[in-house]
Design a protein around this nucleic acid. Structure first.
Lengths: 124, 124, 124, 124
DNA sequence: TTTT
DNA sequence: TTTT
C-alpha cells in the first residue's frame, strides 16, 4: 500500500565506500550532490546505499566527481541519540538502478552543451 | 545539472498545518506514511511541504488518513543545533503535484470504482 | 547512459492476461487507466507488462477496477505494418514494482486486499 | 485520482522544432534517445513536448546530441487514421522540467568533478 | 502519527 | 535520429 520512487542525477562527492560481508553481500555507500534549480543554491547531498551487483559496479566504476543517474527509493534511517536521548533521522536513498552518465572521455572529446557555464545564459 | 524527482503514495498522518503569509503565499505541511514492502516494517514518515494552489487543495481536502499521491523533489533542510553546535538535517519533500486517491471516508461512503472496465463508465 | 523511470497510479481496465511459458517464465499484461489532471479529459490508457513473481501477484490479486501503483520503465515496441509497410509503435510500461492500492471490493467490504496482513500471502 | 510521472535521461536526436503561437505560447518538440540497459539494444526514442519558458530554454540551448534530463508525464496522443480508419496512438512525454546535463565547462576542464567533496568547490 |  |  505504498509507492516510493526516487530518481536523481548528480555527482559523486567521494569515491564509494564498499564493504564485503562474510555472507557474500556487498554494499556501497556514497554521497551524491544534486543541484537545485538555482545555481546560487547549495546542492542537496544525499546518502546512497547500493547492494549487490550494482554495488560492485559502483566499486569498480564510480569515482569522486562521476555523473550518476540513480533510480531507487527513499527511506529514513531513525535512531535515538545516546547522549541527548533525542530522536534522529537520516534520509538514505536505496538504489535499485545505477547509471553511469558521461565519462572522462566525454569531457575530453568535447561536445556537450554550447554556451553553458555562464549562469546568466541559463534562465532557470 | 541536477535531476531530482520523487513520487510517493501513502497516507496523511495528521490534518495538514496551513499557514497564510501576508504576502499572500500559502504553505501546507503534513506528514505522509509510506509503507515499506514488508508489512511488518514500520512505514517511512516523510515531511511534505506544499505551496500555492496545491496548498489550498491540501487545506480543503486532505485529512488525517487520506490516501495521497505526490510528485515532487527531495531536499535536505540543514541547520546547526544551537545547544550542541551539531549539524542537523531533515529531509523534506517539496510537492509539485498532489493527488487525492481516496480516504477512509470514501470507502465508508461507498466511493471507489463502480462498474469499471467499460471506458464510458470510468468515473475518474 | 540512460535513465528511464515511470511511476503511475491508476485502475486496471481488465483482469490481467497471464501467460506461462515452458521455460517457467510468467508474464502478465493489462491496461491501466490513468486520469489526467482535468477530470473532463479521458484518461490515458497504458499497456503494462509484468514478468516473474510480480506477474503472479497480478494474476492472483489484480482485477478489473483494482487501484494500482506501479514503478517501471517506458519502452516503445516497434514493428512494420505488413499491409501498409508503415512503421508502427506502441508504448509499453515494463513494470518493476507493483503495489495494490485497493479495489472496488475494498471499498465495498471496507477491508484491505484479500489475504492481506499476512506477509506469507503477499509474495513481493 | 491519477499519478503519472516520467523521468528520463538521454540525448537529443535532432535540434528542437520550436513554434511560436500568436497567443504568445511557445512549444518545442524534440526526440530523445534513451539507451536500454544493454548497449546492444537499440535505444528507445521518445517524443518530447515542452511548453512555455522551458521551451525557450530548449530553443536556445538544446542541440542534436545534447545530454538532457527531463521530468514530466506520459500521455498517449490518439487519432483515427483517415485512410485505414484504424485507431492510432503515439506516446508523447509532456516535459515539466528540463535539465541540461553536462556543459561546455565540463568539457573544457576535462575530467568530471574538480575538488569534489567540499561543498564550496562544487562547480555546478 | 496513517492505513489494511 | 543521439551517444559511448
Amino acid at each position: 500500500m505504498g509507492v516510493n520512487s526516487v530518481t536523481l542525477v548528480g555527482r559523486a562527492g567521494r569515491d564509494p565506500e564498499v564493504r564485503y560481508f562474510e555472507s557474500g553481500s556487498v554494499v556501497a555507500n556514497l554521497t551524491l550532490a544534486v543541484n537545485r534549480r538555482s545555481r546560487d543554491d547549495e546542492p542537496d547531498w544525499f546518502n546512497l546505499e547500493i547492494w549487490g551487483k550494482q554495488a560492485q559496479v559502483a566499486a569498480d566504476y564510480v569515482k569522486k566527481g562521476s555523473l550518476l543517474g540513480i533510480i531507487g527509493s527513499l527511506k529514513l534511517d531513525r535512531w535515538t541519540d545516546r547522549a541527548s536521548g533525542e530522536e534522529r533521522s537520516k534520509p538514505v536513498v536505496r538504489v535499485d538502478r545505477l547509471e553511469l552518465l558521461g565519462s572522462k572521455r566525454d569531457a575530453e572529446q568535447g561536445g556537450g552543451f554550447p554556451g553553458g557555464g555562464n549562469e546568466e545564459d541559463v534562465p532557470f
